[in-house]
Nucleic acid binder design. Structure first.
Ligand SMILES: [Zn+2]
Ligand SMILES: [Zn+2]
Ligand SMILES: [Zn+2]
Ligand SMILES: [Zn+2]
Lengths: 143, 143
DNA sequence: CCCGATATGTTATTTAGTTACATCCGCGCG
DNA sequence: CGCGCGGATGTAACTAAATAACATATCGGG
């Protein structure tokens, strides 16, 4: 029985390894961002035991843009938009009450940052834009 | 002898506590960003021993805008521009070769982000913008 | 002087990420 | 087939980053 790793309802890429698929599946089914150790806890039953196994998978996934790291949270999310890597600069809005994360690409922001870089001689390789605050739902909540 | 804490060449604010002044002084004299533990190591001779002492001082300093936290680095820098807190959104360009950090405020970026927030109902409380790459000096270096 | 607020000091613990090293598995090649 | 190589895995030990819990000290106002 060839039995590659089944059991998932969605396929993101056909060449993910077992661990990568497990990690990405966990992120995809989560309601919000997860730390590497959160992910590990959820994958103990699948045989994963060491942080490094998670970090290795996350490295590959973030390299390929299938997952993103939230720097201000030390946590990771599944990419919400399969085409986000076409835009070099992805921004995140993180709700501090419910934990929801919205991923969005504002080309204007990217060009602003590129403009500053050009003017100052800085050569950017990676851009991090993260907003903290309250999502629309939580902001309109009573208390 | 009243002897508040002297020995510094510059005064940032007159009401800093001893630990806050030590930490800010360390950041100010550093050539690049420092982690909390880096700071601790440099303040052992001044009697500081526990991470918490550093983190407490850093909390106050960042609250007041005298220091900034670089989320993508888990490190801190002294504020380069005493008036930066007038702008809600401060951006950083971090050189991955020499470690130099440039702090800049692009009002256009802030208004872009505010625009997105307004349109989507998100209520931001804090914004993080960090560029990684090569500073002008390092980018023009041979290898 | 007493009290509350703020700052400090100390120890232990939790959370995050890395280093080092052994093993395993698929694949091309002689 | 047998070998060698690169990528993925597994495991243990460790460093780094941040916090929890608790005890003291310091200062200013009533
Ligand atoms: Zn994405
Ligand atoms: Zn929310
Ligand atoms: Zn500043
Ligand atoms: Zn540089």
């Amino acid at each position: 029985m060839t039995q590659s790793h089944k059991g998932h309802d969605h396929v993101w890429a056909d060449d993910l390894t077992r661990n990568q698929e497990l990690v990405l599946g966990t992120l995809a089914h989560a309601h919000g961002p997860l730390s590497a150790y959160d992910i590990l806890d959820r994958l103990r039953d699948d045989g994963l035991r060491a942080p490094l196994q998670i970090y290795r998978a996350l490295d590959k996934l973030t390299e390929r843009g299938l997952a993103h790291r939230l720097e201000s949270l030390n946590a990771f999310v599944c990419c919400a938009d399969a085409h986000c890597h076409q835009s070099g600069c992805i921004a995140f809005a993180i709700c501090e009450r419910c934990g929801k994360v919205e991923e969005f690409a504002e080309p204007a922001i990217e060009s602003e940052l590129k403009g500053w870089s050009k003017a100052s001689g800085f050569v950017p390789s990676r851009m991090t834009v993260e907003l903290r605050g309250l999502c629309a739902g939580c902001a309109s909540q009573p208390a």
